[in-house]
């Protein structure tokens, strides 16, 4: 039991972060708040990926020294670089998503004068 907690508590913290973002996305009425929640959710997923790359006693994935490492570096010395690459791409894509979502929010505000989804739904109902 203690072993499971010691080995996995990191993952559980990431999951709680992810759920905080998820809650903001589905429970908050304000559209900007939803986008903030989306950002928190994204970062929690990134954190999860990055943590999977960590190897006990390893260092950053940059060659320590050409002479020392010769031409075949020791794999166990370095952190797994592959998740880093995937997340580098994902961060930039995440910002693009945020930008488009915010543009949509501004457009909605111009049309309805509010960012609260219940008020928007009410205005839609009244217009019918």
């Amino acid at each position: 039991m203690i072993e499971i907690i010691a080995g996995k508590y990191n993952y559980w913290i990431y999951i709680s972060l992810m759920m905080i973002g998820f809650y903001a996305m589905i429970a908050k009425g304000n559209l900007i708040k939803k986008i903030v929640g989306l950002n928190i959710f994204q970062t929690a997923v990134f954190l999860f990926y990055i943590s999977m790359a960590v190897r006990e006693g390893s260092t950053a994935p940059i060659l320590l020294s050409r002479a020392h490492g010769a031409l075949t570096p020791e794999t166990a010395t370095y952190t797994n670089p592959l998740p880093h690459v995937l997340i580098l791409t994902a961060i930039v894509v995440g910002v693009s998503v945020t930008a488009v979502a915010l543009a949509l929010a501004i457009k909605i505000y111009r049309a309805y004068g509010t960012l609260d989804e219940y008020r928007i739904a009410k205005l839609e109902q009244d217009a019918e």
Partner: peptide, 17 residues
């Protein structure tokens, strides 16, 4: 992320995120 040895990602997050 710097603590997790992913310096490139940490740099991008600090600048972009």
């Amino acid at each position: 992320w710097t603590r997790y040895n992913s310096v490139d990602v940490a740099f991008t997050e600090a600048a972009v995120g």
